[in-house]
Design a protein around this nucleic acid. Structure first.
Lengths: 226, 226
DNA sequence: TCAAGTAAGTGTGATTGATACACCAAGGAT
DNA sequence: ATCCTTGGTGTATCAATCACACTTACTTGA
């Protein structure tokens, strides 16, 4: 079943797919969205949602479409991560995969629904990942690293928060993503000092405990740096 | 001449190419390597070196090979930049291009030699770029932005210097890349403070003027951050 | 040989950002 | 009422950044 097709100019063409690494934060842990493959190869294994590029479709549109088809999830932010193309990464044929990194807001109530090539869909905490199809483990590693890096010098975090948030929520989110605990006073000082966020004027109660001030990002703003 | 080929599973496959943005610094200006296209489309126009992916070839290997075939240039560093896939970016057929950013050392004596699909090869200063084929203008913009950004938080700059360099050379290189002049004393203090570089113990004379201390990077070191 | 030009080399003071660190208040659960 | 949990606050130290000017060594051309 090796297969390469030939272009009219006689160039054999690889297949092109997109895969989407979708992050969200729940219960103070970073999670990623996976689907269980309904079809070979790797039938029954967990994998990133994704699939073949339609011939007249933009790459990012393909990533969004495949994600929607297989999981029903619509993301708040998506950006290109890296293109993976090892010749042996798919046993069927040569496949080039353009990976996208996406985020869903913390308070997004949407439930994923398995469909199309997906036999099941689930959010997995990053430290409980199952064995993954293809090279998807490496792809997730790269995405995680990128997310961590971008925490430092972009406002990508605010694509993972709800539209409004408390400083406590924001701090727990930072801690979930890059692992280590942060000093509360220094964290707050820095966040407020950067001028990226502003008070909404409201307070919110966490269910338990005392009410906390609500913030939002000041400018709808560039999240894309590079 | 619209053409898409069909895979055995009946998916039409786009073509996949790599393009390489190769930077070097000469005469205190940043330059990029372009080829004049020998064949349609855009015959006679300047474009990035690059071409179709061989079906069993790694992406990065393809980038290096196409660069070598068309220009004879071997780079000191190469990394993936971004994948460009607008459906209309090539008039022939659907083409997905994986762009690579590469560097050549300042003192590399190699002369580019046009061959294969290239009718000519030339280094262009970034502010004298000719009209470019395809979306290569945008690709260069993105590469330039990436290079500027990476100046700040990686040691990518040391892939553009000679193996040894003076602080004056290094500063002019920084200034060439991100445009603005820098204060000499602050620049030197920072460079030495970061501990990335060390003296070789030699001095070098610039042809004119008094001899200057020679430096090199301390660790052969990670250039790749993300 | 002298004068002019160009790049190498050097230090300080002010400001800003980062870090370490401890206590009280308010609400919920028991 | 007690305990537990989270919200909220300030200061002192250190490191990094920035602005800023003069002297020396060598080359070139008058």
């Amino acid at each position: 079943m090796t297969s390469t097709t030939r272009h009219c100019y006689d160039y054999p063409h690889p297949a092109v797919t997109t895969d989407v690494i979708t992050f969200r934060v729940r219960a103070d842990q970073l999670q990623v969205l996976l689907v269980r493959r309904a079809n070979p190869p790797f039938q029954g294994r967990w994998a990133l949602p994704g699939g073949f590029l339609d011939i007249d479709e933009d790459l990012e549109q393909c990533a969004r479409r495949e994600l929607a088809e297989e999981t029903g999830i619509r993301v708040t932010h998506i950006e290109q991560l890296h293109t993976f193309g090892r010749p042996d990464r798919d046993p069927r044929e040569r496949v080039i995969s353009v990976a996208y990194l996406a985020t869903v807001r913390q308070d997004d109530p949407a439930q994923p629904v398995a469909a199309s090539d997906a036999a099941a869909v689930r959010w997995f905490p990053l430290d409980e990942l199952p064995g993954l199809a293809f090279d998807h483990g490496q792809i997730i590693d790269k995405a995680r690293q990128r997310l961590r890096d971008k925490l430092e010098y972009t406002s990508l975090v605010f694509q993972l928060t709800a539209e409004t948030f408390t400083l406590g929520e924001l701090q727990r989110l930072y801690e979930a993503i890059h692992g280590s605990p942060l000093d509360k006073r220094n964290f707050r000082k820095r966040m407020l000092g950067l001028g990226q966020i502003e008070e909404t004027g409201h307070t919110r109660r966490n269910g338990k405990h005392r009410p906390a001030r609500e913030y939002r990002i000041r400018h709808p703003q560039r999240v894309e740096y590079f």
